[in-house]
Design a binder for these strands. Structure first.
Length: 863
DNA sequence: ATGTACAAGATTTTT
DNA sequence: TCTTGTACAT
């Protein structure tokens, strides 16, 4: 519904204005021009000269700088259509990356419409991550993975890190695994492998342990044959750097590269892109300076990210080919000469709102440096919003200092002024907005054309409450997604374990779900063993179930569970995967667990499970389904019913609506206090861009609100109207009174001095405690936290055995034990004993006190 | 191993 | 305020 819905509008409007047609074509005379216009293919129809230039400039690098509502995505889509229909490239030779899977799907859909048929064979249209993942799967063995690797999501990631922290004796309370996950994520966004993390940042957790944990994490991922989302790109970069042949294969393959939302690309994405779009065959760009795979993948990325200070050695034909190009589909049609790179990036520096997630606006600012000879095309004609809305947004964003600067214009009517409404409190705000929406509805507006964009998701609740009482249909966009729901993840975990027994995170997730009496202690035991032996949890479970490490009860259930999995795995060969899923959910007792559950959402969860099984039908087999899940996990919204959309400003990116409500324009909330505290001026500017994005989502009406009192986490605090309100141009704004009626009359200073009351309120405004508390924790600024943790006795006690274990790892990674019959050994639980039988790494030991027991060798040490 | 009582902490979010 | 996670009792 985003850019798509504007297409007809745009065309019809432009049909009226002849001056929009390209009248300055070099060879175009009068008749010829008309003949040409008549023959205009659908994908060029109705483009203005700016847009048309962006579509038709096919050779060499192009940067399209475009403001909101200027048809950016349309340009990209038309460009693909143009490339295809002029026969310059075949679908699989075009690489097009977008920001979300949704955007990718939409582009495919639009492309189909433009070309008049379904778009077949467009395998390289997608997001960075899914494309990166695909390439990684093809060349998995080159990065020491198996091609059926699993992709961990945040939840898995955090649980894995929690275990690593625990093993390192680090208290999860003080240093939550989530924090480490965030850090590692940030490092990966910046394209940093463990060895490249600046020592200051690696010192998090004390003593450079942050860096060590990162290393341990990556190692664990490898043994689990897993990658996290960051790896999908990072490992890709490594792959390209270490295997110039592979890289060249892709460089030659992709004749056209297109990137949407370039302003929101992060460093890793940038590096990845630059490698692919490299025009030169300079060794410094293509080949690593060190010999390939010399140091287990710790690639020196300076030469890539730096300013090209590396040597300009030309890669000769006789350059070493460290790894042969793998056989398979990737091999076809790889010409020897490298074509000039036709990369086209589309973006708007004023819409960069993901800086906090590692996006680098610099990427867009540096474009012509990175791609010499780049053509920069500006799209400044806005087709979306009316005059007042556009003027308000432009005036606001002009307050930002660091920006390229664009002057958007519209030929649309002035329309209604942007309104600013003050409410007494957030409740009244919700009430007022509810009423206005009902009014709009009565006036014949579709609810689909109404959106409420909030800064933070806690603001949503009040609107939901209000809409429920009003009986107004609404949908929350960007809420917990289908695949994030616990029941879906549980079910998937079962299937994942069946598909790949080594999937630890999945196994751990369901080992005691439904409750079957395998508690933390047991899991911990399994985990210790798994890590010591560098094996998967499932393998550890199997090994330990045969010994006396566990009490009979958990041992029995564990063995039963493993038997179940064996059986399911057998059955998976014989029956359709949907049927298997039903059997598994049934026999595991998972369905039963929810059936017994008396809580309100249990029914919905069962429904979701059914939906999951249904969605599996589209796939040929379990493997295919799971691969899809790990990369795209996304569900198309059901049938589109008429409803108000409720979402955060961030998830509104790329969308547009006739009527947009923007509540909560108050200091502290918007701009958000934390952004201000942590990022200072840069933070403020990003917030302002967010405000700009918010206003420019509106086609006909933009309605801003602020409340004088807001309840933040239960306590009421008085708030001050946002400074952004002051920055709006008076001529395009109308100040209205809250129609909620009750409290706020507009008399208290706000009306009189318009928005200049900031100072007046400033003193009375108090920063809520939680904001102040968080204030000095800057992102990436944990450098100062150099206090070595674990000096206390308790954690010492836990860490001490680690050293011993460390030695054990070195000794007993092999499958067979290097103990011999008759050796005296010591066991933590059973004490001293003598080995009487050896079966692989399972030892039978006659203990002095405890009698004869079967034990895995990693649990004993020489006495 | 599991249920319950209490304390802490609470932007934005895509793979 | 309300959710989430941890400490403690059963």
């Amino acid at each position: 519904m985003t850019e798509l819905s504007k297409l007809p509008r745009q065309e019809s409007r432009q049909d009226l204005s002849h001056h929009d047609l390209p009248d300055h074509q070099p060879m175009a005379g009068g008749i010829a021009a008309r003949a040409r216009a008549a023959a205009t293919p659908p994908y060029l129809a109705g483009l203005n000269p700016e847009q048309r230039e962006a579509v038709e400039t096919l050779d060499g690098p192009v940067l399209v700088l475009a403001g909101a509502g200027t048809g950016k995505t349309r340009v990209l889509t038309s460009r693909i259509a143009h490339i295809l229909s002029t026969g310059r490239a075949r679908p699989h030779e075009i690489l097009s990356v977008t920001f979300t899977n949704k955007a990718a799907r939409e582009m495919k859909h639009r492309l189909g419409q433009m070309l008049g048929h379904a778009v077949e064979g467009m395998p390289w249209l997608g997001t960075f991550h899914s494309i990166g993942g695909r390439i990684l799967r093809v060349h998995a063995e080159l990065v020491q993975l198996k091609s059926n690797f699993t992709v961990l999501d945040v939840d898995d990631q955090v649980r894995l890190l929690k275990q690593l922290l625990q093993a390192d004796g680090i208290d999860d309370k003080r240093w939550p695994a989530r924090m480490l996950a965030g850090l590692i994520d940030g490092w990966k966004n910046r394209g940093l492998t463990p060895s490249q993390v600046p020592s200051g940042e690696a010192a998090v957790f004390g003593n450079g342990r942050g860096g060590k944990l990162y290393t341990a994490y990556q190692e664990r991922l490898k043994t689990l044959n897993a990658a996290d989302f960051g790896d999908l790109l990072l490992e890709n970069i490594r792959l390209f750097r270490e295997n110039p042949d592979v890289l060249r294969g892709y460089q030659n393959r992709f004749k056209y590269i297109l990137v949407d939302e370039y302003q929101d690309t992060n460093v890793a994405q940038y590096l990845w892109l630059r490698l692919l779009a490299q025009t030169s065959t300079r060794a410094s760009d293509v080949a690593p300076l060190t010999s390939p795979r010399s140091s287990r993948g710790e690639v020196d990325m300076q030469s890539m990210s730096g300013e090209g200070q590396a040597t300009d050695t030309v890669l000769s034909d006789s350059a070493p080919h460290p790894t042969p190009l793998p056989a398979g589909g990737e091999r076809e049609n790889v010409p020897q000469i490298s074509a000039p790179k036709n990369i086209c990036c589309v973006g708007d520096d004023d819409q960069s709102i993901y800086g906090w997630r590692g996006a680098e606006v610099d990427n867009i600012l540096r474009f012509d440096h990175d791609f010499p000879g780049a053509k920069v095309i500006r799209l400044e004609r806005n087709y979306r919003s009316t005059g007042h809305i556009l003027a308000a947004a432009s005036h606001l964003i002009a307050h930002n200092e660091s920006r390229l600067g664009k002057t958007l214009r519209t030929e649309d009517v002035e329309g209604e002024k942007v309104t600013v409404t003050g409410a007494w409190d957030s409740e009244e705000e919700a009430r007022a907005i509810g009423e206005e929406i009902e009014q709009l509805q009565r006036a014949g507006n579709k609810l689909n054309e109404v959106a409420i964009l909030v800064r933070a998701s806690f603001q949503m609740r009040e609107f939901e409450d209000r809409f429920v009482t009003l009986g107004l249909p609404y949908r929350v966009i960007g809420g917990p997604r289908f695949y994030e729901r616990a029941e879906i993840r549980d079910a998937l975990a079962y299937l994942r374990v069946i598909n790949s027994p080594a999937d630890d995170l999945a196994f751990e997730r369901i080992i005691n779900v439904p409750k079957r009496g395998i508690g933390d202690a047991t899991v911990q035991l399994l985990y210790d063993h798994a890590r010591k032996q560098r094996m998967s949890l499932a393998a550890a479970a199997r090994a330990i179930a045969d010994t006396d490490e566990l009490k009979p009860k958990p041992r029995g259930t564990l063995r039963g569970l493993m038997d179940n999995f064996d059986r399911w795995r057998m059955q998976s060969q014989a029956m359709p995967h949907t049927e298997l899923a039903e059997i598994v959910l049934d026999e595991s007792g998972y369905t039963e667990m929810w059936q017994k559950d008396r809580s309100a959402d249990a029914a919905g969860r069962l429904e979701n499970l059914k939906e999951l099984v249904r969605s599996m039908e589209e796939f040929e087999n379990l493997q295919g389904f799971l691969e899809h899940i790990s990369l795209v996990m996304d569900r198309d919204g059901g049938p589109e019913e008429d409803a108000v959309s409720l979402m955060t400003l961030h998830s509104a990116k790329g969308l547009e609506f006739d009527n947009v409500f923007l509540p909560g324009w108050e200091e502290g909330l918007f701009p958000h206090q934390r952004a201000l505290d942590e990022q200072g001026r840069a933070g403020l500017e990003e917030e302002r861009r967010l405000a700009h994005v918010g206003i420019t989502r509106a086609r006909r009406r933009a309605k801003l609100y602020f409340a004088t009192n807001r309840r933040i986490h239960g306590t009421w605090s008085t708030t001050v109207p946002s400074r952004f309100l002051d920055e709006l141009p008076a001529d395009n704004v109308e100040i209205t009174e809250s129609k909620g009626g009750s409290g706020w009359g507009g008399s208290s200073g706000y009306g009189a001095s318009r928005f200049d009351n900031l100072e007046a309120f400033g003193s009375s405004y108090s920063t809520p405690g939680w904001q102040r508390a968080q204030a000095n924790r800057s992102r990436g600024g944990f450098n100062e936290a150099g206090t070595p943790y674990g000096a206390g006795g308790a954690s010492r006690a836990r860490r001490a055995p680690l050293t011993i274990e460390g030695e054990l790892i070195a000794k007993s990674t092999g499958t067979t034990s290097d103990y011999s019959l008759g050796d005296r050994v010591f066991h933590q639980k059973f004490g001293y004993g003598r080995i009487v039988k050896i079966d692989g790494n399972k030892l039978s030991i006659a203990f002095d006190k405890a009698g004869e027991k079967k034990v895995v060798d990693s649990f004993v040490q020489r006495a």
